[in-house]
Nucleic acid binder design. Structure first.
Ligand code: ATP
Length: 702
DNA sequence: TTTTGCAATCTTTTT
DNA sequence: GATTGCAAAA
């Protein structure tokens, strides 16, 4: 088994004398170290799988890791805990949430729930939601939680008007969550830290159990996650983390790159092993990627070499519009697949923002290239699915206010805005949860008889099914759908009836499958409704992706983290898009964008194609956009540029920066005609104006 | 109360 | 260019 490792990897696999950081660049076999290390521990160090905790970035990565280890050991490792921080925390909290005053069956609020709840608090506090957009406030709250700054601390620290308002919202939000017996994503981490710190017996249970802890993608952990790791390793100190500071791309959601940069300070006796051999990419791709990432400051600094072939140049395609860019990508993919025989699943199209997928989809469909999109609206985010899930959540936890609000009147039960308002008022004046208020709604004035009947019928549904939480999940879903007449409801109203009904059937199927799933994949956990809801709430976008035969994959660069493809297309490489304009004011944020570009480049084994469009339709009318600065950081001799853009393309060139061989750089002030035949009036430096045919100009790329 | 239609606002990335 | 929010009509 060990001959599939190089000397440094082997050292990392075998090192057993305390905290270990494997710090290494892209494609250097870090993830492989984790898998082999687990196998090594089990086979040669007498560690039982049951005593190992491994953290991956996604559920999908966890599944692959488990499979890899089982392949190496040729036995199953059912007892090993492997999953994301969030799923591991949820599992611990299912047992111990009671210690923190929650009830066992707490709900996990997804982003939509969170936003709704924040919004509600803002309204209740009579704060302007124009001045404090819920999404921004939520971002802020989430960042605070990731940093483990509690409400009390925040209210003490808040000095500015803005922070004081955020602090009040934060407090109200936490109280509302607690009233709903619910946790958001951040609470899962924060509450686990509290549990491990404040309850010795709980901590001991897990520190006794987990003799070894391993963490992949350590560069994207936040402070709360660091605390969890630190608590779990407090005594044994058998910790192995792997990561690459140059691939830290989640700073914007609270990930703290210092976790990896300052690992030695946190764990003073730590050993650091560097891997310098890249097994994934061609020499040229690596050289390009290295040149880009070297523009960042404050790095650990790493060497990365490869003995793979040097390979072919990167291709840079410059197009006039988003549509042409997409078409060019589609054509290039057809070529590649026909001429070189690259299988479509070995090709990925990456982009900065999800919105970019649209044009690509149209072009691919047009060219008859099958594709698969990661992200977008996933199955479990569809309205009909979330409706049913809300009922399931209520079976376990009727205090879940967001779910009550979601489905109290779905299907319609004549409980409209006025009735809901009454209920809400009564709830807050009597200090009851919304659900409890429903129970006593008979004594509440101003509710129409129809609405009263609706409330009774809603309550009877919930009562009926909360007694049946132990049913097979699939059966339970089917029974609920029947009981509330959900199919009929869909049939009567909405668009896409067929599709929606099929989705409901698929959910029933997913429930059945969950109930039957073999125990090893669940690490010995029972297939309870709570476990099902956990799973669903904590799915990540990439989890639904399986490399499918004869399909190219489209996804954001973020989702491509950790993956590899023979051929990678990185699209939309314009200043303002990648790097994104929202990140362009701040040097640190630009560096994160650069790391993201580095991640994108290093996904490729053999071929990289970069594309940019001169014009792009966007509602927030971006001004002059040139080719991304990141592209210009790649040495020119490593790229073959194909300028396929028509300089005067469709639409106006006025305001664009252009370049002329003789006169240099200027700005277009007027245009007659279209395409390369257009006559452009260009103002060059020193107020020199010239009228020149577009075909003699170049679009300024920088 | 529900449905429909228009308007405003928004997208950067996601567990 | 779509989704969500709000107002008016049924
Ligand atoms: N010692 C080795 N010999 C041959 N191939 C290897 C070796 N180690 C790793 N690889 C291969 O190199 C590729 C990258 O490995 P892996 O995904 O573990 O790297 P990584 O450092 O986690 O990458 P990244 O940080 O870019 O996600 C994989 O295809 C893996 O199979």
């Amino acid at each position: 088994m060990e001959d599939e490792l190089n000397a440094e990897q082997r050292e990392a696999v075998r090192y057993l004398s305390g905290p270990l950081l494997v710090l290494a660049g892209a494609g250097s076999g870090k993830t492989r170290v984790i898998a082999y290390r687990i196998a090594f521990l089990v086979r040669h160090s007498g560690v039982s799988p049951h005593e190992i905790l491994a953290i991956t970035f996604t559920k999908k990565a966890a599944g692959e890791m488990r499979r890899r280890v089982e392949q190496l050991l040729k036995t199953d490792v059912a007892g090993m805990w492997i999953g994301t921080f969030h799923s591991v925390c949820a599992r611990i909290l299912r047992l111990y949430a009671g210690r923190l005053g929650y009830r066992q069956n707490f709900s996990i609020f997804d982003e939509e729930d969170q936003r709704g709840l924040v919004k509600e608090q803002i309204a209740e506090l009579e704060i302007s939601d124009r001045q404090f957009p819920p999404a921004r406030v939520l971002e802020r709250i989430s960042a605070l939680k990731a940093e483990m700054v509690g409400q009390e601390e925040m209210s003490r620290l808040a000095m500015s008007y803005y922070d004081k308002a955020v602090s009040r919202i934060y407090t109200a939000y936490q109280e509302a969550l607690f009233r709903s017996n619910a946790m958001d994503f951040d609470d899962l981490l924060v509450n686990t830290v509290r549990l491990l710190c404040d309850f010795d017996d709980v901590r001991e249970r897990y520190t006794d159990r987990f003799k070894h802890v391993l963490v992949d993608e350590y560069q994207d952990t936040n402070h709360a996650q660091y605390r969890i790791v630190a608590e779990l390793c407090r005594e044994r100190r058998n910790l192995c983390v792997v990561g690459d500071d140059d691939q830290s791309i989640y700073g914007w959601r609270g990930a703290d790159i210092r976790n990896i940069l300052e690992f030695e300070e946190s764990f003073p006796e730590a050993k650091i092993i560097r891997l310098e051999q890249n097994y994934r990419s061609t020499g040229l791709i690596l050289e390009a990627a290295n040149n880009v990432i070297e523009c960042n400051k404050g790095r650990k600094g790493k060497t990365l070499r490869t003995s793979n072939e040097y390979g072919e140049n990167i291709v840079l395609l410059l197009l006039s519009s988003e549509e042409e860019e997409a078409q060019a990508v589609a054509e290039e993919i057809l070529c590649e697949s026909l001429e070189r025989g690259t299988p479509l699943p070995e090709i990925a199209i990456l982009y900065r923002t999800n919105a970019q997928s649209r044009a690509l989809e149209i072009a691919l469909r047009h060219s008859g290239v099958d594709y698969q999109i990661v992200g977008a609206t996933s199955f479990f985010e569809r309205r009909e699915i979330k409706d049913i899930l809300a009922y399931l959540r209520l079976c376990l936890n009727p205090e879940d206010e967001m779910s009550v609000r979601r489905v109290l009147n779905v299907p319609p039960r004549r409980i409209g805005r006025s009735a809901l308002e009454r209920l809400q008022q009564a709830a807050s004046s009597r200090k009851l949860s919304l659900f409890e208020t429903l129970r006593v709604s008979e004594d509440i004035e101003g509710i129409s008889p129809g609405a009263r009947r609706g409330i009774r019928s809603f309550l009877s549904v919930i009562d009926e099914f909360s007694g049946r939480q132990d049913d097979d999940v699939g059966d339970l879903i089917e029974a609920i759908v029947k009981r509330i007449g959900y199919r009929e409801y869909l049939q009567a109203g909405s668009s896409n009836v067929q599709e929606r009904i099929e989705n409901v059937e698929e959910l029933v199927g997913a429930g059945r499958q969950f109930a039957e799933e073999d125990a090893s994949r669940r690490e010995g956990e029972e297939p309870t409704l709570a476990a099902f809801l956990n799973d669903v709430a904590l799915l990540s976008q990439i989890d639904s992706w399986r490399s499918e035969s004869e399909k190219v994959t489209l996804m954001t660069a973020h989702n491509a983290k950790g993956l590899e493809f023979t051929s990678v297309f990185v699209t939309g490489l314009e200043d303002g898009l990648f790097p994104h304009s929202a990140s362009m004011e701040d040097e640190e944020q630009i560096e994160e964008e650069r790391r993201l570009f580095y991640v994108a480049l290093t996904r490729a084994r053999r071929r990289v194609v970069l594309t940019a469009a001169a014009r792009r339709r966007r509602f927030d009318q971006r001004g002059s956009t040139g080719v991304s600065r990141f592209v210009r950081e790649i040495p020119e001799n490593l790229m073959n540029t194909r300028e396929l853009w028509e300089i005067g393309g469709q639409g106006s060139m006025v305001g664009r920066r252009v370049f002329h061989e003789e006169f240099g750089t200027g700005t277009v002030v007027a245009q007659e005609g279209q395409g390369n035949a257009a006559k452009l009036t260009v103002e060059f430096s020193g107020n020199v104006k010239k009228k020149i045919l577009a075909r003699y100009m170049h679009l300024e790329t920088g």
